[in-house]
Design a binder for these strands. Structure first.
Lengths: 116, 116
DNA sequence: TCCCGTTGTTCGTAACTTGTGAACTAATGG
DNA sequence: CCATTAGTTCACAAGTTACGAACAACGGGA
């Protein structure tokens, strides 16, 4: 398995970020990662929006989010721990990410997973 | 030729907007439309970013921007006059569109076409 | 240590999407 | 009307994405 690749902040592009977030599944994953107060593992998302996803598909989605610079993934034992890179993103893109998430949450009934 | 379709504000989605703006050509077209103080015709963009585009491709890009709700197109004689729908979009999505454009302009050297 | 179960990745390919030339529609001016 | 200019539609080639099957990595027993 090749090592995970996380782009440096300066290599993250607006187009790349928008591309990654343009998919409904990825946008929801990203929003839930953001809404959660601790790292989430990939398999938390095997069911997204009442729809079951194959794990190969899920793995691709995480890869795209990661390589767009939106999330950071760390292997912890057998699991993958994912967090958003919102602080770095804000440094680079200002309020863009936040305002996207706000618009998304507003139009999707602001459901969010409250974690223990 | 079938009539142009512009979605109502309430039918515009975050995902649809992000999808439309995720393409570098469309993002640049949208940014230039926004930066310009009068309506622009499609063929203004036959060359984008020093690269020539076939007009069928350009027509598709405008269609996608239009149907995502980002621009309004009106036929004026033989030409198509395009403007952004930023006011309506702001009503629906708050500062999202503005902050995307700002991030884009910031990272692309803020070149913009100043019109007569 | 050696299996076993769990988690996630890679690969191959089928299904879908996008880009583009050619043909077409529409409006205008001569 | 015919020619010209602007943009759209169509069909298909080229490119991209989704997903099952096989694989790799780790951790916990026995």
């Amino acid at each position: 398995m090749r090592p995970l690749h996380h782009p440096a902040v300066r290599d993250i592009t607006v187009e790349g970020v928008l591309y990654a977030l343009a998919d409904p599944v990825r946008l929801q994953i990203f929003a839930e990662l953001r809404g959660s107060d601790c790292a989430q593992i990939c398999s938390e998302f095997l069911v997204v929006d009442k729809k079951e996803l194959p794990k190969s598909t899920l793995s691709q989605h995480f890869k795209i989010l990661r390589e767009a610079g939106l999330i950071r993934s760390e292997r912890k034992g057998v699991e993958m721990h994912n967090t958003t890179r919102c602080e770095e993103l804000q440094e680079r893109f200002g309020p863009m990410i936040r305002s996207i998430l706000e618009a998304y949450l507003r139009s999707h009934g602001r459901r969010r997973k409250r974690k223990a």
